[in-house]
Design a protein around this nucleic acid. Sequence first.
DNA 1: CGGGATCCGTAAAGATACTG
DNA 2: CAGTATCTTTACGGATCCCG
Lengths: 229, 229
Amino acid sequence: MTNASYKQFCPVAMAAEILCTRWTVVVVREMLCGSTRFNDLRRGIPRISPALLSQRLKELESAGVIVRKGGKGEQGDYHLTPAGLELKPLVESFGLWGQRWIASELSLENLDVSLLMWDMRRRINPAPMPRKTSVIQFQYSGLPAARRNWWLVVDPKSGTDLCSVDPGHEVDLYVATDLRTMTAIWMGLETVRKALGDGRLKLTGDRKLASDIQTWLGLSLFAPTKRAA
Amino acid sequence: MTNASYKQFCPVAMAAEILCTRWTVVVVREMLCGSTRFNDLRRGIPRISPALLSQRLKELESAGVIVRKGGKGEQGDYHLTPAGLELKPLVESFGLWGQRWIASELSLENLDVSLLMWDMRRRINPAPMPRKTSVIQFQYSGLPAARRNWWLVVDPKSGTDLCSVDPGHEVDLYVATDLRTMTAIWMGLETVRKALGDGRLKLTGDRKLASDIQTWLGLSLFAPTKRAA
DNA sequence: CGGGATCCGTAAAGATACTG
DNA sequence: CAGTATCTTTACGGATCCCG
């Protein structure tokens, strides 16, 4: 079917043929967010099968959107080409439209704690945080024990690590909440202040870190978008 | 599969789930270009099966992108909702990227005379043409007899009609060329002047109409886009 | 003739297991 | 870690038919 094409010279149709197969736009989004390794991509796209991810990467490579570095059999390292980088406005169009027009209840049906934490790790802004390494532990009520606790280890110099098992460091701030509340905050559907107010979010530990949370907890790229629906 | 979703709260993924099924973006493009009837859509998307078009229209309706006017069994009349109209920038992103990065030889493999004429009909600009109705006959060499001749009947008041059988009016301008040349001009890949110069395009009839052709023959929306590949 | 619905064979995607 | 292999389910393409 991939070969039995739309047969239209229109550039919209030609681009759609490359990009509008299942998962493809999500793969590109993930690469625009900085993932380059096969398993990093899988982490950002948990429900894609490895076979299909592999196929999509090959298709994107032959379309000139990405290049694979490393020989066959070696570790692959995937990077966007100039053509791939220019897909950024297109992916942003998807995000803006989705944020504006897809009912928020629908988004909040697709809760996924590892996806949320993986996104948060990428968007943490260490600038307003202490010079030293900060450790923030998230505690999600109502989740199975293995997925309940998450640690963000923020080193202003080397970046942020995400752990789902206790890394053993002393914790500077505990964030106790439920997954739906944290996801809604992340998406800009509600605010830290409101969730703190009605008790769905509790912060304990370092006072400064707690009061500054809105400044270092980078929200989703699309959180500022005004909703229409 | 449509229901077994990506399961991601990310608005990019949620939008992609709605829009990135086969043909869907092309259907939206066609509606943004003004088609509202089932068979107008089929004309702009000749290779979609009626069953799949019907299914896509239902999906777009339940996603809130279009509304169907007319009761069940009645004539359907499909219109974009406000959410659908806001897909315009997204569809334009596809077109811009496609025009910039997809090799032109690839586009010119997908020649389709009825698609080209259907697009041209929509983009003709009657303003610089005579007040009276103008008839332009296109003669494509190398096509089977039934698809060789096309007539655009441009009435500055009521709009433009496209005919593939002789409507019987007196012809003001004859445009004799081949399909590849006309498509390349339409896409901005080359100019009328150059095609006239090397004889791949011939204009006979009304001198004024002929010399003004670049002003009234609206090109593809993406013709001004600079290519990268 | 416009606006679809049905049926069937092929092609793509999901799930899971497995390997260098 | 970075993918293949295999099997089942779902989607798509194409032809045909239906109905007002």
